[in-house]
Simulated scan of single mutants.
Amino acid sequence: MLIVGIGNGFLGKITAQYLQKAYTGTANPNITSPSIIVVLGGGITDFNTIEQPHITSYSRLVAACRLYHKIRENKQPCTILVSGKGNSHKTSEAELFRKALIGMGIPDSDIIKEDSSENTYQNAKYSSVMLRKQMPSQVYLVTSGFHLKRALLLFETFGIKPVPYPSDYIDTKITVFPNSYNCAFTSFMLKELIGIVQVHFYTTMGLNKSEK
């Protein structure tokens, strides 16, 4: 029954609502202060020695660029913090993001890199240290909608309460017969559910240490 529930989209539909519904109205913030946009990476694809941000990363780059220009249009200073080392031994994910953002018209002087983190926990841990040094009035967190709930929990663990800014949403389709589309996207979301439980467990056990 579990396999059928995953393959026909039913479980994915419920999980998508739980993970993303709270953030469906947060893509139009009221901008009134200096800001830092934190963009979380989605991995690196190294195909035939050509390194590129993973396909899930491009919506995050576009969303960060859109938010940056919205903040600047409101005549407020803005910096983009790109976070992630990625799975490459050659170029960090943060560096690939930096180059992509420059190509999208973001000044290099408005980009800072956190290129040591290898997972969301480390994204939050290392970025929080840099954010406290920058002392922004507002912090925005850009990542995929299904990833936001866990990412926000981890940033709050390290004393940062960012405004969520979802770059994309995923959902499944209810079908009579199981299909690979539903299986793939449901697996992404189930991984997030497990991660959220893990965050709460570690916090309860005192293993998620804030570094204020």
Rank of each mutant, 00 (worst) to 15 (best):
H89Q: 09
F201I: 09
Q198F: 11
I111V: 09
P34W: 09
G5A: 06
P53D: 07
T49Y: 15
D171C: 01
F155T: 03
G86P: 08
Y140H: 06
S127Q: 07
V129F: 09
E93V: 07
A27I: 14
K90C: 02
Y68E: 05
L2H: 03
L2F: 14
Y169D: 02
N182I: 08
P164T: 03
S128I: 07
I112H: 04
L141D: 02
P162F: 03
G159E: 13
E93A: 07
E73D: 13
L148H: 02
A184P: 03
G9Q: 03
A27R: 12
R132N: 14
I194M: 08
T79E: 01
V38I: 15
V39Q: 06
N87V: 07
L148T: 00
P29C: 11
D115K: 12
N30F: 14
L61P: 02
H54S: 14
S144C: 11
G41R: 12
E156D: 07
G43N: 04
V39D: 01
T49V: 09
N28W: 08
G42W: 15
G7Q: 09
G41I: 15
T45L: 13
R66M: 10
P29R: 12
P107Q: 00
Y126V: 00
G145N: 09
N74D: 06
S57L: 07
F146L: 08
G206K: 05
I112L: 12
L61Q: 01
Q134F: 11
F177I: 07
N87K: 11
K13A: 02
I31M: 00
G25Y: 11
L152P: 04
S59D: 11
I55D: 04
S109Y: 05
K90D: 05
S137C: 11
H200Q: 14
E73P: 08
I36E: 01
R72S: 13
S144Y: 07
S210A: 13
K125Y: 14
H89F: 15
G84Y: 08
K133W: 06
S180G: 00
T26D: 15
K113H: 04
T26V: 11
S33F: 08
L19A: 03
I6P: 01
A184W: 14
K149Q: 10
T32A: 14
Y121E: 06
M130H: 03
T24C: 13
R60C: 10
I102N: 01
A22V: 03
D46S: 15
S92E: 00
S92H: 02
V62L: 13
H89G: 01
D46N: 15
K149T: 08
L81I: 00
L190K: 02
P77M: 10
P34H: 11
P29H: 08
K161Y: 13
N182T: 06
T15N: 08
N48S: 13
